[in-house]
Amino acid sequence: MPLFILRRILQSFNVLFVMSLLVFAGVYAIGNPLDLLVDPNATADDMARAAASLGLDQPLWVQYGRFLANAMRGDLGNSFIHGVPALGLIVERLPATLELAVVAMLIAVLLGIPLGLWAGLKPDSWTGRAIMAGSILGFSLPTFWVGLMLIMVFAVQLGWLPASGRGSTADVLGVSISLLTADGWRHLLLPAANLALFKLSLIIRLTRSGTREALLQDYVKFARAKGLSNARVVGVHVLKNILIPIVTVVGLEFGSLIAFSVVTESIFAWPGMGKLLLDSITQLDRPVVVAYLLLVVTLYVLINLVVDLLYAALDPRVRLAGARA
């Protein structure tokens, strides 16, 4: 088992390295940040001085070497626009994004599994069909458009919830969290629901098809033949089996929630790192883009690692194979 973990960690570093190379090459090789940063009427001398101060006059591989060495120390360069360390800028915004993603995933899981179970147990009932129709719709609705509709209905028409911003936050160990204030919750609800919708549809589908598949299995029939209550057959025998793929997917999809929060954050003006990324892309603020990408890639690699370990913990068959390996 430790060997297995070690190998996975090495693999993860590999992915990180390749991604850093790709990201750097792409971001630094194409486009010219000087055009954006320096007054177009500046002299060639001014341009050269600005380029030198930003290190842009060096050959690419020198730039990358410096970039990598600095990255190891957590220094991904200063933002061209804000003039402060790019990584710090991103990390500052991380809690807001994580908060949004976690609440969205909780909504998706806590609603999705029961709804999916119901639809799987009663596929021909009108409720089961309605749940499935809802999930097909949830798949078809583009996230950004749902965001607009939420704002239109709940913020503009009904005036129940605020349409933008994060509201008041409370500090825990220097990290601002919305979840601790009522106002924070009011601000969080719409964006979280928006972000959750797609995952909710996914979890409903997954749970439903898993349930239907499990119900056909002999072990379910055997469990019923043992005289177990429906609650136990569904709640233990079926659920424990379908939970394995669901946990895997939930884990892997958490990363995509962070990526998709770019959309939700830009609609609801949620001050997370997705919005920062978007601004940085349009302003050609490369260090911030690079810092975002590397941070997200690191998060992904970590999530993948955790999911692998969780999977092994949940499925006795994998656990055994892992122990043998």
């Binding site: 072990y219 055997f222 033949a225 043992k226 005289g227 424990k240 089996n241 394995i244 006795p316």
Partner: peptide, 25 residues
Amino acid sequence: WRALRGDRIAMIFQDPMMTLNPVLR
């Protein structure tokens, strides 16, 4: 029926690989 099944009438299935739940001890 449920009270009867597994108590007064029990059943054994064909494929032992499939009848026991794989994720429960």
